[in-house]
Amino acid sequence: MRLSYPDSIRIIRLPCTGKIDVIHIMEAFEKGADGVYVAGCLEGECHFIKGNLRARKRVEYTKKLLDDIGVGGERLEMYNIAASDGPRFAAVAREMHGKITALGPSPIKKSL
């Protein structure tokens, strides 16, 4: 479909969002990412049955950690997008880009 979305986004490929680990997310923030989002299959339609549900739990947990350390949990999101839904993928990218732009650079980045 080649729908355009902001070029601020870089994708890291995982076999399933169920593979996402808290340390991966925290590493990204520690190294200066302004925002991170995890994009998985629709709930109930995980290719690996329920990896996306586990991912959501870990994301929720990590959001709290980010709140606690003053980075702000709102810089991290979990989205569910069907593999065939290009328009939603682009919309999510725009939404996250807009949100992070409004929040400004991550406090960690400022201190780096």
Binding site: I12, L14, P15, C16, G18, K19, I20, D21, I23, H24, E27, H47, F48, G51, R54, R58
Partner: peptide, 26 residues
């Protein structure tokens, strides 16, 4: 099936998923 859920959940980091090891992702 290679989804990696176990590797992510394992608290002792005893499980690795080939081709998607933590060192590679990090």
């Amino acid at each position: 099936q290679g989804c990696g859920v176990c590797a992510a959940e394992c608290p002792a980091k005893a499980i690795t998923l080939g081709h998607f090891e933590d060192t590679q992702i990090l």
